[in-house]
Amino acid sequence: MITAIIVDDEIININNLQALLNKHCQNITVTGSAMNAAAARKAIMQLKPDVVFLDIEMPEENGFDLLRSIKDINFEVVFVTAYDTYGIMAVKFSALDYLLKPINIEELKITVSKIEQSVSNKNQPLRLDNLLHLLEQQQPDAYQKIALPTQKETFFVPVKEIIRCESSNNYTTFFLSNGSEHLISKPLYEYEELLSPYGFIRCHQSHLVNRMHVTSLLNEDAGYLIMQHTAKKIPIAKQRKNLVKSLLRI
């Protein structure tokens, strides 16, 4: 049995998540709740939960502030938010779990089952470190690290070391500048959303390239991009050619 506490500044949301967990996730017990960061710290100290469902948006101290104030995080964190552009991007970037309000029951079930199988708690401290580090920086920076969770381990890769990403169905392969490749079980469009602020260009349905590693544009067919450290020609989709050119500032 997994124990959980819910941290949210609105009682209705606490009750809602509790009701949903009771109904849909039998292996989890909500042992407590808190409506602000101070109460949450106390509850975590006392109840030592396995999981904390943490609302990001709270008055005074928000969810991230709470995490910063706790030294040894030995519980799983699932972020819960209605809408938070920058915060949720950082959460995704660090490959941490999150839920959006109103809660999607299917997503809730998947998240809880992942926690049950202890899949995502590997490297969680590193991921949280990465998250808090990202939140301290206002601007996207090529030295910032993205968490790439594979079956066995999670790689934290500086954005500048990603040469390109290639899609195959719902998987994405990352090609890094040190020659290694990582297969991640997330669709390419999710990474497009995360990496486009860092100058990544979706030049083709199955290709996302790092602008800083583009060495040349080949004018064959609809065009190809040649990347550093690789001989492979990355095709440019016909309808994206102008967009690619404008992003490359040619």
Binding site: N13, N16, L20
Partner: peptide
């Protein structure tokens, strides 16, 4: 989204 979440909370 908070309003929708509140409605969900009342329902559940």
């Amino acid at each position: 989204f908070n309003a929708l979440s509140t409605i969900q909370g009342l329902m559940n």
